[in-house]
Every structure is written in structure tokens, then in C-alpha cells.
Simulated assay, not measured.
Amino acid sequence: MYKILIVEDDLEMQKLLVDYLRQSGMEVMATDSPNTALEWIKSKGGFHLAVLDIMLPEMDGLELCQKMRKISDIPIIMSSARADISSKILGFERGADDYLAKSYEPIELVARINALLKRCSQNKSIKYGDLEIDVDRRKVNVEGYNVELTPAEFEILNLLIAHRGKPYSRESLMQAISSIAPDSSLRSIDTHIRNLRVKLGDDAKTPKYIQSIWGIGYKFCD
């Protein structure tokens, strides 16, 4: 069952979409608050896709999309009454995967969700040199051998490799990794990274996979 996040401040539209998606067999969580949506992604996780309206309180959907991209790689559909090409381009530049102009029928949204998730599911195996990650099955192979990772180690590795070359601070990793308790010490990130390197056969001094960035944190090697 797909778990969908909807961020829509038109409450009548929001209820219509929630009811229709649930009738289509999807689990749905909806809010009119961008900040609540960000908290849900950080704390609850497990979303397969998000539908974001552009005109929102607190921050617009474009800014929300950009912030979501820093902590999650789930597919994002932008929804807006503004159907001009510049709005669409801005949406894609901020990290959206699809753009749906209002007003649309809920059946079209369901079709877009199914099509987008089908495309994404075909690309859930990530390879980098001798390292391969099966995202759906949460399995990792190095040089053909299976490597057993803890949930936190897997989430850290998956996040870093999905955003290869982008440095993440300990604070950012702590917020993004749902398997780490919020009250944990920031140093627990160092412990998870150290254990992850050992399991991957990586060397902190001459890293193949995870590189320490002095004064910032960590990134996956370019």
C-alpha cells in the first residue's frame, strides 16, 4: 500500500483528494502546514510520494519542496492553479518530479501517482563501484558479498549515496535518520559512520565511499 503525503491548504480540496486516494487503496496523511509536513517526514517517514500545493501558509510549496529534498528523495508532485511555464520550471528546479495544474480531477492525480511510483520503483537499485544498494529490500552488497547493516547505518548510507557529493552535517543527519532517537548525542553519528566504514571495508584516510568533511560532517565520495 502506497503512503502518500498531501500538503494542501484548501481544506475542501484536501478532503476530496484524501477520500479519493483512500478509496483507491492508498494510505494518506494530509496537512495544510508545510512545517508539519517537514516534521512528519523527519519523524514518521515511510512516505512513498508527496503532493504539494504551491500556495501555502508559512512558506510556499516551492520552498517546501526544496527543504524536503534536503532530507528525503521521495517523488514529489507539485500542484498549482498557476499553469504557466515559468512556474513549472521553478517547480522542477526545486526538485519536483511532476507538475499538475489545477483544477484537475482526483482520478488524474491517482494516475500520475501510479505512473511516477512505477517509474521510480524500476530504479531502486543503486550501484557505485563495488557497492550495490537494493533500496526496497534494504540490502547492501560489497564485491558481491552481502553486508548486514543496522537500520540507522542503512539510512545513512542510502541518504549519502542518493545525494552523492553533498556534505551533510551531523545535525542534518540526525534530523533525517528516523532510526536514530532524537535525544541521541551528535557523536552517535560518528559511531554509526565508523561502524559503517568497517562493514564496507572503507578507510577514513583514503575513502572509497564515505568522506569526512572537516568542520562540516560527511559526504559520499564524488
Results as ranks from 00 to 15, higher is better:
R170Q: 11
A101L: 12
A115R: 08
V140G: 00
K166H: 11
I156W: 04
K124L: 12
N141T: 08
P106F: 11
H163A: 15
N141I: 07
S125D: 12
N141H: 03
K118F: 15
E171I: 09
S121E: 10
V135N: 04
L117A: 07
N146R: 14
K118W: 14
L149C: 06
N114P: 04
R164T: 06
I133F: 03
I126S: 02
K102I: 03
P151I: 06
G129E: 01
H163T: 12
F154H: 04
L149V: 08
I133D: 02
K124Y: 12
I156P: 06
L160F: 00
P167R: 05
K124F: 10
E148R: 13
V110E: 05
S125V: 14
C120P: 13
E153W: 03
A152G: 14
M174F: 05
V142S: 05
A115G: 09
S121T: 09
R112C: 04
L109M: 05
E143T: 15
N114G: 07
L109E: 11
N146P: 15
A162N: 09
I107E: 13
V142E: 01
G129F: 01
E153M: 02
R138Y: 09
I113L: 00
D130Q: 10
S125L: 11
P167I: 05
I161A: 10
I107Q: 13
K139Q: 02
D130K: 14
S121C: 13
K139S: 10
Q122T: 10
I113W: 00
P106D: 13
E153N: 01
E148H: 05
R137C: 07
R112F: 08
T150F: 14
E155G: 02
L149G: 00
L173T: 00
Y145Q: 13
N146V: 11
A162Q: 06
R137Q: 12
I126Q: 00
A152H: 11
E148M: 04
T150W: 09
F154C: 05
R112S: 06
R119W: 07
Q122G: 14
A111D: 11
M174Q: 10
V147Q: 14
S172R: 09
R137I: 02
Y145V: 13
Y128V: 04
L159V: 09
D130G: 04
S121K: 12
L109Y: 10
A162W: 03
Q122S: 15
A176P: 10
D134S: 01
G129D: 02
R112Y: 08
A115E: 03
N123Q: 15
N158R: 08
P167T: 07
I107C: 12
E148S: 09
R164G: 08
N123L: 13
E132T: 05
L116A: 04
V135S: 06
L109K: 00
K102V: 03
G129N: 02
G144Y: 12
L116G: 05
V147T: 14
G129I: 08
I156M: 00
L157I: 01
K166Y: 02
A111N: 08
A101I: 11
P106V: 13
K127Q: 09
N123K: 15
N141Y: 06
A176I: 09
N114V: 05
E132W: 08
Y145C: 13
G144V: 03
V110Y: 08
L159T: 06
H163S: 11
L173R: 03
F154N: 05
S121A: 14
N141C: 03
C120Y: 11
R112E: 01
V110N: 12
